[in-house]
Design a protein around this nucleic acid. Structure first.
Lengths: 340, 340
DNA sequence: TTGAAAGCGCTAACAC
DNA sequence: GTGTTAGCGCTTTCAA
């Protein structure tokens, strides 16, 4: 691979001049510039990001940690983040933390030694279990926490308002006449899951409905988890509606319920949260709460870039509003029966 | 951030010795080693991958280009690839080519200037449109092409045998008594899609069934594409079975068909290919062909690593066998009617 | 407007 | 076993 010295030699100039042409960092004589560009072309020269980064401390890279590639919510998030990064000529190194604090820490270290200029963290575990660790990292590199607030750690954050989302969802189901409303939530008390649960709990309370512990079950963050959770819930009680803490769980639950011969929404209405693409592909289509992922990604990345460009700029907590999306899985029973 | 010089100073040794301890590249006196490790700890020192990579030409990084994060097949692939990479202490930089040759080329350049040690390419467009380009890149860095053969380009490849898969699928449907079997394929003639189509075509022929052009429709690689494709197909003809070139398309088609009031599999049987997680979540569950993604990822990465460690080693075309998975969406009608 | 020289943090070759 | 030295490919003073 050709180096800047090769280019300089071919063009009959110094390395410094080539660098100037490359980075537009000083005025270069028109003729000289032309010769340099020709040399670059003829050698098929490409600057080395390693050398560049080492010298200038700018790697145009940031790191991002998500729990799992296979959760469609993160697929959408990654897509949006990549586009945003692209706009700023950044590239993202993506790692999966798998809800494992040690693995998360390991990757964060790894990213740091690769001199990323910023980090996007969807680390439900570390943030809680390792406040001081994250705090130390934040001194070295700008961090934005996704999907949950920053809990007093001096970093920025960007997340959808899950509390409000679950208030809307629960309110809506109660309006439809439901009283025995179950909830499937995550096994561990992750903040984003917890917020959603509180929205559900408080809304029940507001309407004078007592929370029934039999109607709250916990499971892994997968469709299979939702399936098992529904099984457990139905073995204890018989709700007329079930909310999943996210769409994936709701879809898993729906699968179990339909396999058992129950009608959705006739016998049991189901709703989720996140509005992943899948939620409108299943049948009946899933009622859910839309998270404007693009907007979150855009705001998060621009905040991160701002912080990279000016490390002393303020941290921000960016809270994004969500929208209730009513679909077949919670349609009023009468209407549903007509359709059948 | 502390550097190797700081560590050397604190430990009272030379940088070389620190490097030796760090990389286990020579025997170091036990006492000295201890002092070095203490210094590393006390300084919270982390080696810089930039400097390391620059000097040693080893970045422990490879690049991977996929079409889209949102296709679940790639989510699974990425997960497996990350795990394999992890075993070898490599990290992956993931980019999406979006079936766009220019974007693919741009990212490949980008990866190259970041000195990746190898590339995994799921680039349906570039490989075909830019053979010489890929060929040039292959001279600089080991490449493994995924999901399709290497077409004579001197690189390795790893893919599932889509031709055979579609033979099995078509054979099976014909055994079930289907004659009017439609196929939904990709808009562009990507090799992996084309192979699958040929398996379908040849199997029909083998059974003396003539290919009906009205029963072959093309669409984008998304569920929405499959939905539209089914609409078009049904407006022209009435098959008793439809195969999607992948599960996503099949699921989109199924959605349209059920919305139109047809029974699946009663009126129209549906099958896909890939066995994405989603295929067993929809109802009826989708008959499909399993691609052992883990195995492909494992073989691909170990081949890539082999090539990195010994650039003169042979290229290989790794072809992985697939398995027919029969589910509800193609169950014999009689059995289905009993179930209803 | 351009060049020379220093140095980013590390490893590798060679001495001792 | 360990230290010295050179240099990876680039940017950034400082001089001219």
């Amino acid at each position: 691979m050709a180096t800047i010295s090769d280019v300089a030699r071919i063009a009959g100039v110094s390395k410094a001049t080539v660098s100037r042409v490359l980075n537009d960092t000083a005025v270069v004589n028109k003729e000289t510039r032309k010769r340099v560009l020709q040399a670059i072309k003829s050698l098929n020269y490409m600057p080395s990001y390693l050398a560049k980064g080492m010298r200038s401390k700018k790697t145009s890279t940031f790191g991002i940690i998500i729990p799992d590639f296979r959760n469609p919510y993160y697929s959408e998030l990654l897509k949006c983040i990549e586009e945003e990064a692209r706009k700023h000529k950044f590239i993202a190194i993506i790692c999966t933390g798998e809800m494992n604090a040690e693995r998360e820490r390991e990757y964060i270290h790894y990213l740091l030694s690769r001199q990323v200029e910023g980090m996007v963290l969807c680390c439900y575990v570390s943030i809680l279990e390792n406040k001081t660790f994250i705090q130390d990292i934040a001194k070295k590199v700008p961090i934005i926490v996704m999907d949950q607030p920053s809990f007093g750690i001096p970093v920025s954050s960007a997340y959808a308002d899950g509390y409000k989302g679950f208030c809307k969802l629960t309110d809506y189901l109660i309006e439809q006449g439901h009283v025995k409303i179950g909830m499937i939530r995550s096994l561990h008390k992750y903040p984003c899951s917890e917020c959603r649960f509180l929205g559900y709990r408080d809304t029940l309370k507001k309407h004078g409905i007592e929370l029934d512990p039999d109607l709250v079950v916990e499971c892994e963050f997968t469709a299979a988890g939702g399936y098992e959770a529904a099984k457990r819930m139905l073995s204890r009680s018989k709700p007329t509606a079930i909310i999943g803490v996210n769409d994936l769980l709701a879809i898993g639950a729906m699968k179990y319920i339909r396999e058992k011969g129950y009608n959705v929404p006739g016998d049991i209405a189901i709703a989720g949260h996140d509005n992943i693409a899948l939620s409108s592909l299943v049948s009946p289509q899933l009622t859910t709460v839309n998270i404007p992922v693009e907007k979150i990604a855009e705001e998060a990345i621009s905040q991160l870039i701002r912080k990279i460009e000016n490390p002393r700029s303020w941290n921000r907590d960016i809270v994004i509003d969500t929208q209730l999306i009513i679909r077949q899985s919670t349609e009023p029973v009468t209407k549903h029966e007509i359709l059948m």
